[in-house]
Amino acid sequence: MRAVPQFGERRPDKVYRDRPAAFGVLVRDGQVAVVRIVKPAVPAYFDLPGGGVDEGETPELAVVREFGEETGLKVAVREPLTLADQFFIGSEGVPWNNRSSFYVLDLVGEDASLKVEDDHTLVWLAPHEALAALRHDSQAWALAAWLRR
């Protein structure tokens, strides 16, 4: 069993709950799909599309579902990419340790009816721009792992 890299700062005054999560790397015309997220009382930030794995759901199903909810794009998992964990304080103030699976995805189509997260906007960035923009080091690390392939 290989070690999974841990990112983020674990603050001693917080109790972090493990959160299974899945994120995807989707490339179109040399650009990487990211989402710009705007929430009240925090500066806008960028993430790879994806999120929490629901009870009874596989990470592969979660990344497809989350991608649609955040971007309106229909995707399929091509292959697993890597694993990484990230301590962070969510925008609602809840401390999490994202236990993330990352996947390389293929674009299947567009379906605007899938998009339900109004605070997420799909943005296409050059890979190195995305590396610099991503909020979480674990996501930038996974994207760098994809680039090095």
Results as ranks from 00 to 15, higher is better:
residue 59 P to A: 09
residue 106 D to Q: 12
residue 68 G to D: 07
residue 10 R to W: 12
residue 95 P to Q: 10
residue 86 Q to Y: 02
residue 110 E to I: 10
residue 112 A to Y: 09
residue 100 S to P: 03
residue 12 P to C: 01
residue 34 V to W: 00
residue 34 V to N: 06
residue 78 R to V: 08
residue 120 H to F: 13
residue 78 R to E: 09
residue 7 F to Y: 12
residue 63 V to E: 00
residue 23 F to G: 01
residue 22 A to R: 00
residue 54 D to Y: 08
residue 90 G to D: 11
residue 64 V to L: 08
residue 57 E to D: 12
residue 53 V to G: 01
residue 64 V to H: 02
residue 45 Y to T: 13
residue 103 Y to V: 07
residue 108 V to H: 01
residue 118 D to R: 14
residue 85 D to N: 08
residue 99 R to G: 05
residue 7 F to G: 01
residue 59 P to Y: 06
residue 63 V to A: 02
residue 103 Y to F: 15
residue 111 D to G: 09
residue 12 P to H: 04
residue 114 L to H: 06
residue 10 R to K: 14
residue 87 F to L: 03
residue 28 R to L: 15
residue 79 E to K: 15
residue 33 A to E: 03
residue 37 I to A: 07
residue 11 R to I: 06
residue 105 L to V: 11
residue 7 F to W: 05
residue 74 K to S: 04
residue 22 A to Q: 06
residue 124 W to S: 03
residue 62 A to M: 07
residue 94 V to F: 12
residue 95 P to R: 04
residue 124 W to M: 12
residue 103 Y to P: 01
residue 10 R to G: 03
residue 102 F to E: 04
residue 48 L to V: 04
residue 88 F to P: 00
residue 89 I to G: 04
residue 97 N to R: 14
residue 91 S to C: 07
residue 43 P to R: 07
residue 86 Q to V: 02
residue 119 D to T: 15
residue 26 L to K: 01
residue 55 E to D: 15
residue 16 Y to K: 00
residue 119 D to Q: 14
residue 38 V to L: 10
residue 41 A to Y: 12
residue 70 E to D: 06
residue 118 D to P: 11
residue 89 I to W: 01
residue 10 R to F: 02
residue 89 I to C: 02
residue 102 F to S: 10
residue 71 T to W: 07
residue 84 A to E: 07
residue 98 N to G: 11
residue 84 A to P: 03
residue 31 Q to S: 13
residue 96 W to I: 02
residue 48 L to P: 02
residue 75 V to S: 00
residue 103 Y to G: 03
residue 112 A to P: 05
residue 26 L to A: 07
residue 85 D to G: 03
residue 10 R to T: 02
residue 111 D to C: 15
residue 122 L to M: 09
residue 124 W to N: 06
residue 8 G to H: 05
residue 24 G to L: 07
residue 56 G to E: 11
residue 73 L to H: 00
residue 27 V to L: 13
residue 10 R to N: 06
residue 31 Q to P: 07
residue 81 L to H: 04
residue 8 G to I: 11
residue 66 E to L: 13
residue 126 A to Q: 14
residue 15 V to A: 08
residue 118 D to N: 15
residue 68 G to Q: 00
residue 34 V to I: 11
residue 103 Y to Q: 04
residue 83 L to C: 08
residue 24 G to D: 06
residue 117 E to N: 13
residue 50 G to I: 03
residue 59 P to S: 08
residue 114 L to G: 05
residue 125 L to W: 03
residue 109 G to C: 10
residue 113 S to Q: 13
residue 115 K to R: 15
residue 68 G to P: 01
residue 101 S to Q: 12
residue 114 L to Y: 10
residue 59 P to N: 04
residue 114 L to V: 10
residue 70 E to G: 05
residue 11 R to F: 05
residue 22 A to G: 00
residue 66 E to T: 09
residue 29 D to Y: 10
residue 45 Y to S: 13
residue 20 P to Y: 13
residue 43 P to E: 14
